[in-house]
């Protein structure tokens, strides 16, 4: 797949579709409070969009969109956002992952709502980065036997 000559139609269609998938994915992440969806589903969709471009353009060109060396650090950053939200609650005097202690808003319930949003963003980032990095590693790792 790496040394693959891209078919113009396939390449055009995937490049056109990919941004829309990503937009829908962002909608899924940020609208997870009101409808089915959330960080994991949205993150997987973004990863699918990125992988779609990789499939159609060949991995080397697609590095410009999402470099293969970003996967591991970005994935850790996503988990760190989640973890940090929980840890911040500890530093503000609550239990681990007690979003009410974060005082993000006047009401405890609104604070929890924002806390959930933060956490979902972390989940989305982590899942995107890690799924793309698994794909990259499977495709390119130990290329020659």
């Amino acid at each position: 797949m790496k040394t693959h000559r891209s078919n113009p139609i396939v390449s055009l269609v995937s490049r056109m579709v990919s941004p829309f998938i990503m937009m829908f994915a962002l909608y899924v992440i940020f609208h997870g409070h009101y409808s089915p969806g959330g960080g994991f589903q949205g993150g997987t969709l973004i990863a699918a969009a990125i992988i779609l471009v990789r499939l159609s353009e060949g991995s080397d060109t697609a590095q410009l969109q999402f470099s293969r060396s970003w996967g591991t650090p970005l994935g850790s950053l996503g988990v760190l956002i989640y973890f940090g939200t929980g840890l911040a609650a500890v530093f503000m005097g609550g239990r681990f992952l007690d979003y009410a202690a974060l005082h993000l808003a006047h009401h405890a319930s609104m604070s929890r709502s924002y806390g959930i949003l933060l956490v979902e963003i972390g989940v989305g980032l982590a899942v995107t980065a890690i799924l793309v990095s698994i794909y990259d590693n499977l495709l390119e790792g130990e290329a020659d036997a």
């Binding site: 650090p73 850790s76 950053l77 973890f83 840890l87």
Partner: peptide, 20 residues
Amino acid sequence: SNSPALAPLSLLLAAILIPM
């Protein structure tokens, strides 16, 4: 007050920080 959770959490933090 948080000591019961701290052992796994500190190890997890190290696991997150090492790749970064």
